[in-house]
Design a protein around this nucleic acid. Structure first.
Lengths: 231, 231
DNA sequence: TAAATACTCCCCAATAATAGCGGGGCGACG
DNA sequence: CGTCGCCCCGCTATTATTGGGGAGTATTTA
């Protein structure tokens, strides 16, 4: 079974191979896995034409692509047909994509990580709606599972992407960060925690230093990204 | 197959039933699904003793529970044995849990949503390591899939939990929020975007209002939680 | 084509944030 | 019993951020 190959893969370059194997196994045009991040850091592998990938990056299609935008707002895997392709930018993007060999049908599985990591596993194919529907009926479950296994492997090979800062905040620091993230002012937080604003400030600074943050907003953002606070 | 029952479930009360059916189907002690959030809003269903659930909430075990803390920092499903049970609080929690009928073996699947939603799907059982290992070998894949389907159903029944405010930020607003989340000061952001600080402030305020945030930190936190920005 | 949205710029007064300094008490770990 | 981390409180000072106005152009959408 295809999952076995995934579980046994042991080198990063194999992911590319596996994506090709998956493409053949499922008999579709493309299988793509890519990491989504606006901070430059993009990683991806799959069977798209490298020219298209380059064009995608160059044109900053990440901000236009309805697949990315849609999955980013969604909980569950989504068929491309359900996405919103009405905007001018989206239609332009779609036309460009089709010209570069991308199929008209697609299914993307959003995958999320603890630090706001976000990845997409996509199956893409060119066919009519009927054939696509039948394909999805048959393979949806296995595809979802494959998506998660693929992601797990990608993480194993790129440990940098799952940093696990291990930075721990003290309970009071967690409280402070949490209320700040909820929009409380310092005075409100201090009041809520029944401590002086001076003391509160000490916690905020401690958290800021632990998190290597430049300011309070940054500290809250990092605490959220690292899963240290829940709001 | 059990997934069919999940797909066909059409009422919220059925989730409780389904969790019981899943427990019997997999022949384990407990199946639990619960939503994790410190903002009061907790939802859960499953086969744990209600007395334990109440105790869990009362004692604020959410902040102690290594399963929650561990999964919150982790990308992938995790066996409870892999978690860190060394702290005093964690050991006390474990002892308390065992006394309340919780099994010693567990497997939890973290599930994340676009707005920072976080849920756990847990299988719990009392048995020796060997039996548990065999069980997991057999059922891991199906459990992962069941976890995601269960979550999907829970979302359908509780649409409030997937609010999808549809709030969209303009590109410039996204830029502003992103750099702020990265710790840039307003001056730095304005400089980076090559606009005046005054203009930048308009974006920040616009984003704040769109997001219903009380201040900049809150706005950044919400933007992060809603997946509107990535850092 | 009109309406909506996005982008750009400006002033001002009040508030929040940051960076230092100092103090004391508690509990856990070795 | 000493060290370490956490919890709590005080002070001063400068700088940055905030939130309330208003106003014009450009682009996209309906």
């Amino acid at each position: 079974m295809i999952l076995e190959a995934l579980e046994q893969a042991s080198e990063l370059t194999q992911l590319q191979e596996i994506s090709e194997n998956l493409r053949d196994y499922f008999n579709v045009d493309h299988i793509v896995y890519h990491w989504v991040s606006s901070a430059g850091e993009q990683y991806g592998c799959g069977t798209y034409d490298p020219a298209w990938v380059q064009r995608y990056v160059e044109r900053d299609y990440l901000r236009v692509d309805p697949v990315v935008q849609g999955c980013y707002q969604r909980f569950t895997p989504v068929d491309w047909k359900k996405l919103n392709w009405t905007s001018k930018a989206a239609r332009g993007f779609l036309a460009d994509a089709l010209e570069h060999g991308i199929g008209n049908q697609g299914f993307s599985v959003p995958i999320r990580g603890p630090s706001g990591q976000f990845a997409l596993f996509t199956v893409n194919h060119r066919c009519d709606d009927e054939a696509w529907f039948a394909f999805m009926e048959t393979n949806r479950r296995e595809l979802i599972l494959v998506a998660h296994y693929f992601n797990q492997k990608a993480l194993e090979f790129e440990p940098d992407r799952a940093p696990e800062s291990a930075t721990q905040l003290s309970p009071r620091e967690v409280d402070a960060m949490t209320f700040l993230a909820m929009g409380y002012s310092r005075a409100q937080v201090a009041d809520t925690l029944s401590i002086s604003e001076h003391t509160l400030r000490v916690y905020i600074e401690a958290a800021r230093h632990k998190l290597g943050a430049a300011n309070t907003t940054h500290a809250v953002a990092r605490a959220l990204q690292h899963g240290l606070i829940v709001i």
